[in-house]
């Protein structure tokens, strides 16, 4: 670490701080080692893949060219982007509304509704895909965006997360808004929601990511190759007796990009709840 780096700390530099920073940074680098190995493999030709050197002997972008060559990957990319975005918007709206209701309203059946919604986390998707498939086939949802999206529009995970965070919003604030004559819906939307921005950002990241990487259900519900999502399309590189790992790695590298962008855009909202600090006391 150079001198200029250290002076970037606002407070006087203490050895403990430097040590903390160094350990965290080292941990971070260890964390991305497998990721770097993935990138390295994506730059190798098929006959170099099992060479397993960290720096490819003859790096090439041929795999990336092949990935985009027939235009299919672009179509899968767009499909993933559209479905993940819509599902994320729906989850943010509904899950936070439910979470808020369960955290801030007292009514008969509240505990039951909460446990019931929570229990939906406990059935593996593997067991639900067949009933969903039958349902989709009756309703004519097979091979459609709606078919890919519908099971994830509201999630037990998000409800639970938002309930926990809305629980930290002071009741006094909500009561004050009621006295000011705001409608219940506007209290949630205009008063409570801005206070849980960190949690909303986190939920947006997780939901987008979860849908971006979802595999089993999109696979089952789509037969039309043009409607595949990225993970379903990428699995074509694995075959009966041969998996083209250099292509799997290339696809995985490219499909990390949008999730990384979403993360970078949203992570800055995971900030300290400024509003609260001025209010308490």
């Amino acid at each position: 670490m150079s001198i200029t780096d250290i002076t970037a700390f606002r407070k006087p530099v203490r050895p403990v701080r430097v040590l903390t920073w160094t350990l965290l940074a080292m941990g971070g680098i260890v964390m991305i080692m497998p990721f770097l190995f993935m990138i390295s493999t994506s730059l190798k030709t098929p006959d170099q893949v099992y060479d397993l050197r960290f720096i490819p002997a003859r790096p090439t972008l041929a795999n990336y060219a092949e990935l985009f060559a027939d235009g299919r990957f672009t179509a899968w990319f767009v499909n993933s982007l559209i479905t993940s975005t819509i599902v994320t918007a729906s989850v943010l709206f509904f899950d936070s509304l439910i979470g808020y209701t369960l955290a801030k309203y007292r009514f008969r059946g509240r505990g039951l509704v909460f446990i019931a919604i929570l229990s939906t986390l406990m059935i593996p998707t593997e067991m639900l895909v067949i009933p969903w498939y039958v349902m989709s086939s009756h309703m004519g949802w097979l091979d459609s965006y709606w078919g890919i999206m519908f099971p994830g529009l509201i999630t037990g995970f998000g409800v639970f997360l938002m309930r926990q965070f809305f629980g930290t919003v002071p009741d006094e604030l909500i009561d004050a808004a009621r006295i000011d004559g705001l409608s219940e819906f506007r209290i949630w939307w205009e008063i409570a929601m801005p206070l849980v921005t960190p949690a909303l950002s986190a939920l947006a990241i997780f939901t987008f990511l979860g849908n971006w990487t979802a595999f089993l259900w999109p696979l089952i519900v789509t037969s039309d190759r043009d409607l595949f999502t990225v993970p379903v399309g990428l699995s074509s590189f694995a075959s009966e007796n041969l998996t083209r790992w250099e292509m799997v790695m290339t696809g995985a590298a490219v499909s990390t990009i949008p999730t990384l962008i979403v993360f970078i855009l949203l992570q800055k909202y995971i900030i300290r709840g400024v509003v609260l600090s001025g209010l308490k006391g």
């Binding site: 696979l219 089952i220 699995s235 074509s236 694995a238 075959s239």
Partner: peptide, 8 residues
């Protein structure tokens, strides 16, 4: 379909 999920 991708091989690994053909049976599924």
């Amino acid at each position: 379909f991708p091989y690994a999920q053909f049976r599924t």
